[in-house]
Design a protein around this nucleic acid. Structure first.
Length: 544
DNA sequence: CATACTGACTCAGAAACGTTCTT
DNA sequence: TAAGAACGTTTCTGAGTCAGTAT
């Protein structure tokens, strides 16, 4: 491979685009100016209204200033980035308004870079790389209440990059005048290049695209582990039920946690360093404040109310009736604890996974998510699909099955900005179609009357024609209604993550084959590339 | 054992981008 | 038929999981 493609260097602002401090124009040093542009570009983003973001930015920015600049620039409120902001907005619009040929030229240049840096040779095969570009410098955008939001993410230089390639291959050349941090030949890992980022001090990697053989095989393995769980899950379930009554507190906590992971598809929940990241939890890291116990709620017994922020600070809110021993155990775990205390104080992910490993080779907490997602899809497809339906209705069933999984895994999205409007538009279309339908019915009636009166060939043909038209309109209306239902149900649910990461693609491939739905209807080009192994492998009788 | 820390990998939603449909 | 809205696709990079090692 050729190593990473580096982010373009900073281009200083034209002289007429000014930064103002305390109302007066101020020429900034290039390095200072570059960081200022990061903030200026984000001016109409919500981030810049947040105090933590502002403080982190200002603190990091001042560190990079010259001492004269630092002496002068003391308050962010006195900084005026508006002109800079406008410059970037205009530039963006100008780029969008470029004539076709110019755009084509830019596209070709991008393709050339992709061609040159976007592929590698692995075991003699040319494979697509996933992310071959280094991340450009900018301001860190954490999710949720991240204590580090707004901090300066530094530019990655060749001197930061470790190259991994095989001994007998040609080592990629660093950009002229530069050196790599290190070149190594480690064939026990899959990454091609790596660097350490300065915000969390974690390593970033350049790895292969999901369509590659290597990633495909791993994906397949993942689902095979989940299928093995299918064979032992009943045993595991009776085991953890028995453990609810264990004399050991540790076992009780472990078995209740496992129940949650299995029933609710919660994530494992590693401990996190306090103050370094947003405060989010998974199963093992749940705190007392995250659940409420209701002996009775809305006519149901032993209801647990969950309310916590999970991965990416997505809220998990759910009221679940649980089995009585679970409820009793939870009461026990919460005794004499403060809201901020760990619910499972004798448990962590290491302990849990050690136990799972003993139950089944390769079993970890996340396998339950994969297993329950895939088995849910399979069951839902079976329950919802009607072989007599047309393709559109079958696709609605597929989406509904997919949606059941997304709900289980709590995959959410922000309601799209244009949702209300596009829903209205769709409704208007439906109304118009209904009117059209009424008209068509009238016309058919008239044609029939005509036929009765004349009984000639011509009017018979007219009746047939009107019948056809009516059918066509009815079908169109049905399709629109299906679309509307699908859209409404999907408002805040993200189907993509489960489709890409949790659902054994062979289930979907088999379903398509069985019900005569073209595979392109459920997987787009990229997805077909990623799931090529499954499309190859699965026939219509595949069972997860 | 408990704990801290590192490394490598999967999984996550937002935003940018490109294509298609409407007006 | 061109502009622009809507929608699907791709990119981006942050946030998890989990194993391994040192202390």
């Amino acid at each position: 491979h050729k190593g990473p493609y580096f982010a373009p260097l900073y281009e200083p602002l034209p002289d007429d685009v000014k930064f103002y401090y305390d109302g007066k124009p101020m020429k900034l040093n290039v390095a200072t100016e570059e960081i200022a542009t990061f903030y200026a570009k984000m001016l109409d983003h919500e981030y810049t209204t947040k105090e933590i973001f502002q403080n982190n930015f200002f603190y990091d920015w001042r560190k990079e200033m010259t001492s004269e600049e630092r002496k002068k620039i003391k308050h962010l409120e006195k900084c005026d980035f508006k002109e800079m902001h406008k410059y970037f907005v205009d530039k963006n619009e100008a780029r969008k308004a470029l004539p076709k040929e110019e755009k084509q030229k830019l596209k070709e240049e991008a393709d050339k870079i992709q061609e040159e840096y976007g592929y590698c040779i692995l075991d003699g095969h040319r494979e697509k790389i996933g992310n071959f570009k280094t991340e450009p410098p900018g301001l860190f955008r954490g999710r949720g209440d991240h204590p580090k939001m707004g901090m300066l993410k530094k530019r990655i230089m060749p001197e930061d990059v470790i190259i991994n390639c095989s001994k007998d291959s040609q080592t990629p050349e660093p950009p002229s005048g530069h050196k790599w941090k290190e070149v190594r030949c480690d064939n026990t890992v899959t990454w091609l290049a790596s660097w350490t980022e300065n915000i969390q001090n974690s390593i970033k990697y350049i790895m292969l695209n999901p369509s590659s053989k290597l990633k495909g095989e791993k994906d397949w393995q993942k689902y095979e582990v989940a299928r093995r769980l299918k064979g032992v899950v009943n045993k595991i379930r009776s085991q953890y039920r028995a453990d609810w009554k264990s004399r050991e507190m540790k076992k009780r906590q472990r078995s209740v946690a496992l129940y949650f992971i299995d029933k609710l598809a919660l994530r494992a929940g590693n401990e996190k360093e306090e103050g370094e990241t947003a405060d989010t939890v998974g199963c093992c890291s749940l705190r007392v404040e995250h659940i409420k116990l209701h002996p009775e709620l809305d006519g149901q017994e032993h209801v647990v109310e969950f309310d916590f922020l999970g991965k990416d600070s997505i809220r998990y809110y759910n009221k679940v009736p649980v089995e009585k021993p679970v409820f009793k155990n939870l009461q026990l775990f919460m005794e004499n604890k403060d809201p901020g205390d760990d619910l499972f104080d004798r448990l962590n992910t290491t302990v849990l996974n050690k136990h799972l490993q003993d139950l089944m080779d390769g079993l970890t907490a996340k396998v339950f998510r994969t297993y329950n997602a895939s088995i849910t899809l399979q069951e839902q497809l079976k329950a919802l699909t009607d072989a007599e339906d047309n393709v559109a209705a079958k696709l609605l069933s597929y989406n509904r099955a997919n949606r059941a999984v997304a709900i289980l895994c709590n995959h959410q999205r922000a309601t799209p900005k244009s949702f209300e409007k596009s829903m209205q538009n769709l409704q208007a279309k439906i109304d118009a179609k209904k009117e059209q339908l009424g008209e068509a019915q009238m016309e058919l009636k008239r044609a029939k009357a005509d036929l009765k009166a004349k009984k000639d060939v011509k009017s018979k043909a007219a009746v047939e024609k009107k019948k056809k038209l009516l059918e066509k309109i009815q079908e169109q209306l049905l399709k629109l209604n299906v679309q509307a239902t699908d859209k409404e149900e999907n408002k805040q649910i993200a189907l993509g993550t489960s489709k890409l990461n949790y659902l054994d693609p062979r289930i979907s491939v088999a379903w398509c084959k069985k019900f005569g739905v073209p595979i392109e209807k459920i997987y787009n080009k990229t997805q077909r590339e990623k799931f090529a192994w499954a499309i190859d492998m699965a026939d219509e009788d595949f069972e997860f």
